[in-house]
Design a protein around this nucleic acid. Structure first.
Length: 592
RNA sequence: CGGGGCGUAGCGCAGUUUGGUCAGCGCGCCUGCCUUGGGAGCAGGAGGUCGCCGGUUCAAGUCCGGCCGCCCCGACCA
């Protein structure tokens, strides 16, 4: 490509709308432009990177035996009613009625459509296993699109779906996808970690996320400082030290805590307000949350400085529906308005996070308006409750595997794999006949990659004050030939020769043939971040050399003009081999 | 959806408090000269219904009302 003919609108100044590095650089380097909130045009350079990423994904997916298909973005709403997901996915769906009045949605994901396909065309165990995938635009009416392409309303997703006859088959498919994902992200030049995850509205029980650690990430992950445990904060378990474990079975007898005392706390309903008003620490407070668990009120006790984890509560209670109770229910259950609930004298079921067992002299709501209780001792003033891990894990908590401290960091989710089981096959009726003529639901898994996010994550984690630092694998062009002065015949001719020869040898290369000053071209080159730069200038030519420089390095290699092309090819080969080594270094996946 | 901020030329911004030489600056763009190893210099020039609609006023970018768009924070009693 000749730069003079290319549509590459770079920006010297940072657009006001962009806050994080990747967003700013994608705009400045002329990779994307915004149409409206969460909707972006990919310009030629950005689109090249996107397509290269797609090709890597396709290559690795095909290598697993998965088969590529393309499903419609337009989906009948009935399918979503049928799967039961209209309810919990509803607000996220872009919906419309077509001219015939048919309720239609734009696909945010394709479990329904692919399961419909399979139920209609797979009826025998002989047709399984099967993995189908597609790379397609997804639509989600996000609450708040943000950070450029990191959370957008329209984005490119690779979604794969596996269909197996039994759990062993599912495990094999899952592992194959997991392995392929590691290879894909490694090839794209991402530093990623795999974490245990909550499956959310997709459903299923086992799930892993592929995270690129970065402060710009929206997810919080907890990683053990000693062992290999890593999990999304939504999922992370809190380790149980032996000492605390003992205590859970046997309330300590405390003799030096005075009797419970009721104190006035007019209008103080939050932990902050009460702790400030009564001058106590949030760690002393017993937060009492009234939930409706499958319609039944349950009081959940959480230490004041901790946060309840609804997924954990749901699992601990063994219920499918869980939500915080409405004001009316709270008043009925506790006898007090919202903000004054406490476990003392409460008649409904009570479950507590394990940290409650360590409170010796607690503060909690009095189940009476404008009043709290102090000197509350669990086991003395209210029955010793059942204990579970019910809170969100935080930095410093013990690892559930080895007890070492968990470290907290933020991460960008680039991929997610789920073991779905039979959620969709049963809801939509995807059955097959096994070898014993038994009718059984297909066992499913699903596997997603946010393609746009790969670009953003790479940039977010690989840039400097001058611009982007691409991996050669997904850079818009791998090589830039940069003649320093266009009015010097010899410079232009040399640059042209190298450019043409590289093209002939199959290298994707761009020639900056713009009649601009050298400094200007250098700035653009660094901003976009073409990995390998060949500068052709008067100074070098006097010695018969051109200058080779990798974007991420300070080293400039002087190479005789005649050897330039071979050297570039050798450098690219070396780089490729290095990538391959990194990919191969990934051993068997950590699938639990 | 709640809170906060913003909307003036392609980009970044000033001007709005106190209505009236208030259509401005820098970058970018065009023309010419000059320059050519890290976003040069000089001269000339093009480009804006001041987000939209309505109101107040002799007069509105500026005041009032409504709407739209964009960005950031936060979302289900703690």
């Amino acid at each position: 490509m000749r730069w003079s003919k290319a549509f590459v609108p770079t920006l010297k100044e940072v657009p006001a709308e962009a806050e994080i590095a990747s967003h700013q650089l994608m705009l400045r380097a002329g990779l994307i432009r915004k149409l409206s909130a969460g909707a972006y045009t990919y310009l030629p350079l950005g689109f090249r990177s996107l397509l290269k990423t797609v090709e890597i994904i396709r290559d690795e997916m095909n290598a697993t035996g998965a088969q590529e298909i393309l499903m419609p973005a337009i989906q009948p709403a009935e399918l979503w009613e049928e799967s039961g997901r209209m309810k919990d996915y509803g607000p996220l769906l872009m919906q419309f009625k077509d001219r015939a009045g048919r309720h239609t949605v734009l696909g945010p994901t394709h479990e329904e459509v692919v399961t419909d396909l399979v139920r209609n065309h797979v009826s025998s165990y002989r047709q399984l296993p099967l993995i189908l995938y597609q790379i397609q635009t997804k639509f989600r009416d996000e609450i708040r699109p943000r950070f450029g392409v990191l959370r957008s309303r329209e984005f490119l997703m690779k979604d794969a779906y596996s269909f197996d006859v039994d759990l062993d088959g599912l495990n094999r498919s899952y592992e194959a996808m997991y392995r392929a994902y590691c290879r894909i992200f490694e090839r794209c030049g991402l530093d990623f970690v795999v974490v245990e995850a909550e499956s959310g509205p997709i459903g299923g029980d086992v799930s892993h996320e592929f995270m690129v650690p970065s402060d710009a990430g929206e997810d919080i992950l907890l990683q053990c400082s000693a062992c290999s445990y890593a999990a999304n904060a939504e999922r992370a378990e809190v380790g149980l030290p032996e000492q605390l474990k003992q205590r859970l079975h046997q309330p300590r007898t405390v003799s030096d805590v005075p009797a419970v005392q009721k104190v006035d706390t007019p209008g103080r309903t939050t932990i902050e307000q009460v702790s400030a008003f009564l001058n106590c620490r949030p760690e002393q407070m017993i937060k009492t949350l009234i939930y409706l668990a499958d319609g039944q009120p349950v009081a959940v006790l959480i230490r004041g400085d901790h946060e309840a984890n609804e997924a954990k509560i749901r699992r601990a209670l063994g219920v499918s529906e869980l939500s915080l109770a409405d004001a009316e229910t709270i008043e009925r259950v506790t006898g007090a308005p919202v903000g004054f609930a406490g476990p003392v004298g409460l008649s409904c079921r009570i479950v507590a996070d394990r940290a409650i067992a360590e409170i010796e002299d607690g503060v909690t709501g009095a189940n009476e308006a404008d009043a709290h209780l102090v000197h509350v001792v669990p086991g003395r003033d209210f029955p010793w409750p059942e204990f579970h891990d019910l809170r969100v894990a935080v930095h410093g908590d013990p690892c559930p595997r080895c007890g070492a401290a968990l470290r907290q960091r933020r991460g960008i989710e680039v991929g997610h794999v789920f073991k779905l089981g039979t959620k969709y096959s049963e809801a939509l009726g995807a059955y097959f006949l096994d070898a014993h003529e038994q009718r059984r639901p297909v066992i499913m898994g699903c596997y997603g990659i946010g393609v746009n996010r790969i670009l953003a994550a790479r940039i977010e984690t690989h840039h400097d004050e001058h611009g982007i630092i691409w991996s050669t694998t997904i850079a818009p062009y791998r090589v830039l030939v940069l003649p320093l002065a266009m009015q010097k015949e010899q410079i232009v001719q040399t640059a042209e020769r190298i450019y043409e020869e590289l093209r002939r040898r199959g290298v994707d290369v761009i020639l900056d043939d713009r009649d601009a000053r050298a400094g200007f071209k250098f700035k653009d080159a660094d901003l976009i971040g073409f990995p390998l730069r060949i500068a052709v200038g008067e100074r070098g030519l006097k010695e018969g050399v051109v200058e080779l420089k990798w974007r991420g390095s300070d080293q400039v290699q002087k190479v005789p003009v005649g050897e330039a092309v071979e050297r570039v090819l050798a450098e690219l080969d070396r780089d490729e081999a290095e990538t391959q080594r990194r990919v191969d270094r990934h051993g068997p996946p950590i699938v639990r």
